[in-house]
Write a protein that binds this DNA or RNA. Structure first.
Lengths: 96, 96
DNA sequence: ACTATAGGCAAGCACACACTTGCCTATCAA
DNA sequence: TTGATAGGCAAGTGTGTGCTTGCCTATAGT
């Protein structure tokens, strides 16, 4: 549960994938690959990205839909919403 | 920076240490050890916890102060505040 | 002084994990 | 059907890391 989310966020490449999907949701594996190598100089193999996407999907951070031979990946930020509330006690309201 | 924080949060034992410090800040290494083994059945060595605390401190999530032969550890939730805002775009206000 | 407590340092081990390579399947266009 | 594109599966490799063990330092009590 939370274990999967934190493990998924632990890797810098996976965080960049989330960045990429946040900027433009609904990309295919090849799109993510090429844009990561363009913008971030990340020369990773297609399988590496594919495995990262699997981890992100297992954590619920990425959802995928298949259309023909394309598989589109969408960002899901819902699991991130209250991830740190576990330790942040607001017994003293900060402002407002 | 963010790298250290996510790596620190990736380990379940470290998250339990944060839980423990959130519940009761200012504990020593031995206190954390014994309470982890009591409440969570975590029979880890003192050095294991010490190394975890070093990782948490490097991430800025834990601060320590030395007094005599005691070293007290305090939780610092500041780095956690906006950790997920990187991906959560509020271009559409959710409610309120 | 001696002893016990609180903690630090460093080497070693074993497993997890990021990444690659090679091969296979499925969809679409010619 | 043939070829090209988009993707999947599985085994192998190497580094990172969580944890242990053993020894050392420092503070406090007697």
């Amino acid at each position: 549960m939370a274990e999967d989310i934190f493990k998924a966020l632990a890797d810098p490449t996976r965080r960049k994938i989330l960045d990429e999907l946040a900027e433009r949701s609904g990309q295919t594996l090849f799109e993510i690959c090429s844009r990561l190598s363009m913008k971030h100089q990340l020369g990773l193999s297609r399988q590496a990205i594919s495995q990262h996407l699997a981890v992100l999907e297992a954590a619920g951070l990425v959802e995928s839909r298949r259309e023909g031979r394309y598989k589109f990946h969408d960002l899901n930020t819902a699991p991130l919403e209250h991830i740190a509330e576990r330790w942040i006690r607001r017994d003293a309201p900060e402002d407002s």
